[in-house]
């Protein structure tokens, strides 16, 4: 064996442990999910009956609750993509300027995302409580006692209330990434534009926005993936209720595993859900590329 081949072989040996771990903990489970999704396995028995496409057919044509849960997740995602990210961008702009105590604001804004979703859910349960909640107390104080209600149990407000919690918990991620993006834009460009007489809007439109497009893409994709997979906040607040008003795909998948012991069916749901997320992300990337070309 010549020295070059030896060197290459040695390099492969060094990556062997990492490759082994990657294959066992990432690649194998990935393909295993596809395999299980074609069975009616309960997750316990050693044998699983092969059912082919039956689970997928049932989900597509005979499971309206799953698609309702998808619609609910999509609703929260739209709110997150708009309200949450606009808020994050606005705050990032403020902190990008050399304001006094800027670092303190950064820490404060970044606190909600690092809190556990269950803890956040419990705190907001108390805020939204129908009888002794902080929000109702405040509303009564300012004379809006008529609209007081159990925000998380009312059919018209439950999904909005859950969305508000998610937006509050999630905007910090976008804030940090957008702030990092803003700070990476060379200051000379702004200075040159100012010298040329550009106002704030023109600077934002012609300098900040084009240079921030890759960051917007990243934040949007992370928002879509993170929000569509919302779970812990729902479990800590509404459990998917009342009725199916706050069900999301993750709660349906867990309900299939825990409540019905249908692991094969749950895996099929997971595969469909994963493919939808993949398509959404690809669409987002494509749309952003087109925007960049414009």
């Amino acid at each position: 064996m010549n020295p070059k081949t030896k060197q290459i072989a040695a390099s492969y040996v060094f990556i062997l442990p990492a490759l082994f771990l990657f294959l066992v903990f990432s690649v194998y489970p990935f393909f295993k999910v596809f395999q299980i999704s074609a069975t009616s396995w309960d997750g316990i028995s050693p044998d699983a009956a092969f059912v082919g496409w039956n689970n997928f057919k049932d989900i597509f044509f005979d499971n309206p609750v799953f698609w309702l849960s998808m619609k609910n997740a999509f609703f929260i995602t739209v709110l997150a993509l708009t309200i949450q990210n606009l808020l994050a961008l606005f705050l990032a702009f403020l902190c990008d300027r050399d304001i006094r105590g800027g670092n303190i604001y950064r820490v404060i804004f970044y606190l909600p995302p690092v809190l556990s979703g269950i803890v956040v859910g419990l705190i907001w349960n108390w805020i939204f409580d129908g009888n002794y909640g902080l929000l109702n107390h405040f509303l009564a104080f300012i004379g809006l006692g008529d609209i007081c209600r159990a925000w998380l149990a009312h059919p018209q407000t439950a999904l909005w209330a859950v969305a508000v919690i998610h937006l509050w918990k999630g905007f910090g991620w976008g804030f940090v990434i957008l702030l990092a993006g803003l700070q990476s834009i060379p200051r000379e460009l702004y200075e040159a534009a100012r010298v040329d007489g550009a106002n704030s809007w023109v600077v934002f439109k012609n300098i900040t926005t084009p240079l921030m497009i890759p960051v917007f893409i990243l934040v949007s994709i992370l928002t879509i993936l993170g929000t569509m997979q919302i779970f812990d906040i729902i479990i800590a607040t509404t459990g998917g209720g009342p009725g199916y008003h706050t069900e999301v795909p993750m709660t349906r998948i867990v309900a299939m595993i825990v409540g019905a012991s249908k692991l094969g069916y749950a895996c099929a749901m997971g595969v469909i859900f994963g493919l939808i997320l993949l398509v959404l992300s690809l669409m987002q990337i494509r749309a952003s590329k087109m925007m960049r070309q414009v």
Binding site: D129, G130, N131, A150, L152, A153, T238, G239, G241
Partner: peptide, 12 residues
Amino acid sequence: LIDGAVTMVNKT
């Protein structure tokens, strides 16, 4: 039934 019990977990 008190307001909010319909989505309340037993611990609450």
